[in-house]
């Protein structure tokens, strides 16, 4: 079922909300070091797909494996308890569209909260790593500031550092730049490019075509809850296989 290199293996995921079939039989694998960009028109189910991977939404059918371990269903074949799910979720980092920083904690505390409280790692060690991560996203001077005092771009860089602090096997990005003012998008993409270059395993839902074109190792194009096309960006952007992808690229390349 899973090959050795696959960090994330998604097999036949489906999800419906009431009458609406949001995801139909989605399958793909992400190997170590890949940057997969998920593209597609809004409402095509991209965000739901991400939320199904760490079971923020419970998929109706299909399987998800993280380094060979089934997510959401335990060895006994039953749905995981909150506790079991929590343990698996610590191995999946997530970056949210609206940052979702915890407002009552400082930037440094935001980074340390889950590693110390959930992963139970020693605070001193976590603090050191967290400071290094803040330096990496260029926010060392903001460690003791509350998120409310940051710009959108700074908030999202903290969001990324917070996800990295968990040392996850894979990073999920849910439209990380779509809530930002245009002039703040660049600083966040810069950090993400750096992560791609380092060979972090990432799945990124985005509308930033330029970023997808030159940072992604692979494009996953979705429409109406299905994966319509997948391939390296050079091929996808230049000569897509499907008509729907071609129209999508045209519309977004123009805008």
């Amino acid at each position: 079922m899973t090959n050795d290199m696959a960090v994330l293996d998604v097999a036949g995921i489906s999800k419906r909300f009431g009458d609406l079939q949001v995801l139909s039989d989605i399958s793909f694998t992400v190997t170590r070091g890949e940057t997969v960009c998920v593209l597609g028109p809004s409402g095509s189910g991209k965000s739901t797909l991400l939320r199904c991977i760490n079971w923020l939404e419970r998929p109706d059918a299909g399987q998800i494996y993280l380094n060979g371990d089934r997510i959401g269903i335990n060895n006994g074949g039953v749905v995981m308890s909150d506790r079991e799910l929590s343990r698996v979720r610590t191995r999946i980092g997530m970056v949210f569209q609206h940052f979702a920083l915890w407002p009552h904690l400082t930037v440094l505390q935001n980074l340390m909260e889950a590693p110390v409280q959930v992963q139970r790692r020693p605070a001193a060690e976590v603090r050191e790593e967290a400071m290094a991560l803040l330096a990496k996203v260029g926010l060392s001077d903001k460690a003791d500031v509350f998120p409310a005092r940051l710009s959108g771009g700074q908030k999202q860089r903290v969001g990324i550092a917070r996800a990295l602090a968990m040392k996850p096997d894979v990073l999920l990005f849910d439209e990380p730049t779509s809530a930002l003012d245009p002039e703040l998008v660049g600083e966040v993409l810069l950090v993400m490019r750096e992560l791609a270059r380092e060979g972090r395993t990432m799945v990124i839902v985005t509308h930033e075509m330029g970023f997808a074109r030159d940072a992604a190792t692979r494009i996953l194009f979705m429409d109406r809850g299905r994966v319509v096309e997948t391939g390296p960006p050079e091929r996808f952007f230049v000569s897509p296989d499907t008509e729907r992808a071609r129209q999508f690229i045209q519309r977004y390349a123009a805008g």
Binding site: N54, L56, D82, R83, L85, S86, R87, R89, T90, I92, M94, F96, Q97, H98, F99, A100, L101, W102, P103, H104, L105, E113, A114, Q117, V118, Q119, R162, M166
Partner: peptide, 27 residues
């Protein structure tokens, strides 16, 4: 309250009483 920070708590492995005490309650 906005929903996302609480959801982030869940995504980062908080659940049950710890989620309430550490993430939901202080704000």
């Amino acid at each position: 309250q906005p929903r996302e920070p609480i959801e982030a708590g869940v995504a980062f492995g908080f659940s049950g009483p710890r989620l309430f005490r550490r993430i939901i309650l202080p704000p």
